[in-house]
């Protein structure tokens, strides 16, 4: 039979509705939210600031430290236990690696840039949403970046290549499901995050990545607009 129609009726290459805003946490040096369907990610950036303990300092460059955290009530059903978990540490690490290639922190030796990603509600695709929010927040903090980073999950549900899986699709029982979060630097096409969960054929993976690249370009335009909207107000 195959997967004929998506659960919420959108097209196979269509994302859920996206809403992005910059400057949502006044106390932070930079901040943003990125909402895609029912997955909401808030990011706050603090820094560059003094890094303590001193033993962690790098005299050659500033470092980036990303913390991904799902709030206790954010999951589907069960309460998410607060505090670091195997999963959140992994996502923090891969998000850091996804964002670092656009940053140049050599002008700030011995310092740290802290990025906190908090998710009040999640419905699949949370690491991609977190990276999108973090990239806008880093730009808002006034850091030098060679580009923004955009991210999206693509994958396969049964026999169809789909963009931006939601929870029910990840849990689809009647066929195989592959979930592939991808982050990319749009100006160079460099991929900074590529993970894969589930079986997919080589040709299908190549096609999925190709689709993701186009979608990410659109997402980065949404990010740019959100940044400009914040600062436009100051110019009149």
């Amino acid at each position: 039979m195959g997967y004929e129609k998506r659960i919420d009726g959108r097209g196979f290459k269509e994302t859920r509705p996206i809403e992005a805003k910059v400057g949502v946490i006044e106390k932070a040096d930079g901040s943003a939210y990125f909402k895609i369907g029912k997955t909401w990610a808030y990011a706050a950036v603090y820094g560059p600031r003094e890094l303590l303990p001193k033993s962690m300092q790098n005299p050659k460059t500033g470092i980036l430290r990303v913390n991904y955290n799902m709030l206790p009530f954010s999951g589907v059903g069960e309460r998410v236990r607060p505090g670091p978990s195997r999963r959140s540490r992994e996502i923090s690490m891969v998000s850091e690696a996804a964002l670092l290639p656009v940053l140049d922190l050599e002008a700030y030796p011995n310092t740290v840039v802290d990025v906190f990603i908090e998710l009040p509600q999640t419905d699949a695709g949370s690491r991609a949403a977190g990276i999108c929010a973090a990239s806008m927040a880093l730009a808002d903090a006034g850091l030098e970046m060679k580009d923004l980073v955009g991210a999206i999950a693509v994958g396969k549900v049964d026999d169809k290549i789909v963009v931006d899986l939601q929870y029910e699709e990840e849990a689809y029982k009647e066929g195989e499901v592959a979930d592939i979060p991808i982050a990319m630097i749009p100006s160079t096409g460099e991929i900074t995050l590529l993970q894969m969960d589930g079986p997919i054929k080589r040709e299908e993976l190549i096609e999925a990545i190709k689709i993701a690249k186009d979608v990410i370009k659109d997402i980065v335009e949404i990010q740019r607009k959100a940044i400009k909207d914040k600062y436009k107000g100051m110019i009149q």
Partner: peptide
């Protein structure tokens, strides 16, 4: 002149 730009914009 005086346009607002974002990182990565040509």
């Amino acid at each position: 002149e005086r346009d607002i730009v974002t990182p990565g914009e040509t």
